[in-house]
Design a protein around this nucleic acid. Sequence first.
DNA 1: TCTTTTTTTGTAATGATTACAATTTTGTTT
DNA 2: AAACAAAATTGTAATCATTACAAAAAAAGA
Lengths: 137, 137
Amino acid sequence: MREKAIQRLTEYGFRPSLQRIAIVEYLFTHSTHPVVDTIFNELSSSIPTLSKTTVYNTLKMLAEKGAILQLNIENNVTRYDGDIKPHAHFKCNQCGKIIDLEIQGEMKNLSIKEIEKYKIFEQYYIIKGLCPFCQEK
Amino acid sequence: MREKAIQRLTEYGFRPSLQRIAIVEYLFTHSTHPVVDTIFNELSSSIPTLSKTTVYNTLKMLAEKGAILQLNIENNVTRYDGDIKPHAHFKCNQCGKIIDLEIQGEMKNLSIKEIEKYKIFEQYYIIKGLCPFCQEK
DNA sequence: TCTTTTTTTGTAATGATTACAATTTTGTTT
DNA sequence: AAACAAAATTGTAATCATTACAAAAAAAGA
């Protein structure tokens, strides 16, 4: 997993520093759409000098170039995802849980007018509503 | 447009108060994905007693029930959209502009596994990258 | 009209994110 | 290797959108 993290970093033109590798590796091993605070807390034990600013900056930087996905599902927290294949996220308005929904077939088949003129770094689909469990109040 | 706003409100079980009508009507007449501040400022002249909290609360409430769309494209501002047909938004990482991208064909054709178990209130597609203009640096 | 409920309002607090300058680390050149 | 330059990291302080809360106003019901 560490190797994969290094590969992702270099592939997108980032130097694979200790901190960056740890952050990307964390995303690869936790498909939980973690927030900055969680990532920071989890990594602090292995990298005691780690600064939260570094986590913020690194994630932002990586997302801007498309090396990871920045998910703005709620309006108060930013979540991150190491899986950059286009996919969908369901947010339950009741219990707040965020569920990955698998998309069958190619999401790229969405025929968007003149999409070839745009250079795409990130893309994702957001669905909000009530999850099966919360529907039975 | 005022009538359409009232209709949208009652349709989703909200009482059509002066403030609510104005807010929804603003969204209907401005497909610019406005932020709370803009809406508040624009409406203040016609409703001098309007409170920003009302704008916040109203928009949040309406979005939670699917009467309008809450767009969390950037991680620092929430935008709103009166158009609740599923559609896509492109955010240019360079110039920051948000562009509506028309989707041809039914977005609902996205075959998501077990989607019928979920009750959907809001859904939208987000694409980030470089717009045609910014690509020529 | 009186009472109850709903909506709106204003201020104060919260908390995630960023700005910034200093420090450390890494890479390069002589 | 030492010295220098560039890049990355760190910590603190500031910013600012959003929410909490309680009071006031408006609307609905009796």
